[in-house]
């Protein structure tokens, strides 16, 4: 009976639930401002946004690896019901690499240049699975083979300078998956790679997800990989989520003008005036906006509907439900949806 209850609870509690997360610089400037994010079991969630929107800071905050100058000032990050924000250093060391693993943008500089591949891939096995040096090294060869590295026994003894970017990212994936984590936070894992290699790495991540019942938070600015890969998508702007929901619906007909603009930019098709779509201005100043919607200064919708101006510039909209597990932070959701399909 107790077992039954436990199972049911495990199913109902999402794997990761971020509530009202705030991250600030020591100087007081807020970079992540009230972030809410939920990742279910075996779910792939894409976190998209322009550079400077706080995606990478979010990735580091979720695994509590923020540099000294950055602090989590409020909010909670519940992983399987336990708050990561409240964990001690030694609890975090047991969690990282075992429950939550990470991938980064430039795999080659993420590997220690003076240490062999096998030593680094073996670390989670030795730390979290208690394997000895020899056992761990033997397991490393299997892991390297499973991520599609040819000659795994040879590559195990290689140094990072002997690996291409794609190979290095495969090594990082092998290390990330070594101790069987439940969540993989992948911060722009394919951005620094050739397009063909990008596709291979994404396919590999999909395979790993199937094989290990893995949840993935994919952080990217590249919308073209979102539709092919993510179950749900969260759009980030100036430290906040502007829209969050099922990938298929959002990519077809977004409920937020910013998402709509992002998608149109990524399509690279000429607008009615023959020019490529671009969003005027930049998001880097938006963190300083205290009143109204942070996207308002760049919002074309607001410009086209002057009646919205007062509301948009004085009161920030909340993250309101649009549909099933779909939310948007806009005063004019109905008008955006009315514009129809994005492409």
């Amino acid at each position: 009976m107790a077992d039954h209850d436990m199972t049911r609870e495990n199913v109902s509690v999402p794997l990761l639930e971020v509530r009202d997360l705030r991250v600030s610089l020591e100087s007081g400037k807020t970079l992540i401002d009230g972030l809410d994010l939920t990742i279910g079991r075996r779910e792939v969630v894409a976190l998209v946004g322009e550079s400077g929107s706080g995606k990478s800071v979010t990735a580091l905050a979720l695994s509590r690896l923020l540099p000294d100058a950055l602090r989590i000032t409020s909010g909670s990050i519940c992983f399987e019901g336990q708050d990561i924000v409240a964990k001690s250093d030694s609890e975090l060391n047991r969690m990282r690499g075992a429950d939550i693993s990470m991938l980064f943008q430039q795999p080659q500089v993420m590997l220690d240049p003076t240490s062999r591949v096998q030593a680094q891939v073996a670390e989670p096995l030795r730390k979290h699975r208690g394997l000895g040096r020899r056992q761990a090294f033997a397991r490393v060869v299997d892991l390297l083979r499973s991520v599609g590295i040819p000659d795994p026994a040879v590559r195990a003894r290689a140094f990072s300078y002997q690996l291409s970017g794609g190979m290095a990212q495969r090594v990082m994936i092998a290390a990330a998956m070594a101790a069987g984590p439940k969540l993989l936070i992948a911060d722009e894992p394919t951005t620094a790679l050739d397009v063909t290699v990008q596709a291979q790495i994404l396919r590999l991540l999909k395979e790993e997800r199937e094989r290990h019942d893995l949840s993935i938070l994919l952080i990217t600015h590249d919308l073209s990989i979102v539709s092919a890969f993510a179950d749900r998508v969260a759009v980030m702007y100036a430290g906040r989520i502007l829209e969050e929901g099922p990938t298929r619906e959002i990519m077809r007909r977004p409920a937020h003008p910013y998402t709509r603009a992002l998608i149109r930019c990524s399509l690279l098709v000429p607008e009615s005036d023959g020019k490529l779509m671009s969003i005027p201005g930049s998001g880097s100043q938006a963190l300083a906006i205290k009143e109204g919607c942070r996207f308002a200064p760049r919002c074309t919708l607001m410009r086209e509907h002057p009646g919205l101006r007062i509301a948009c510039c004085s009161r920030e909209p909340g993250l309101e439900p649009v549909g099933q597990r779909w939310k948007s932070r806009c005063h004019a959701t109905a008008e955006v949806l009315h514009e129809g399909d994005v492409a």
Binding site: L65, D89, R96, G97, A98, S101, F104, A176
Partner: peptide, 22 residues
Amino acid sequence: AAPYITAARARGLSMNEAVVHH
């Protein structure tokens, strides 16, 4: 501050272990 130290810590090494090993 090097990226490979962050990566090593993401694998579960404590700061001291990461500095000693890498």
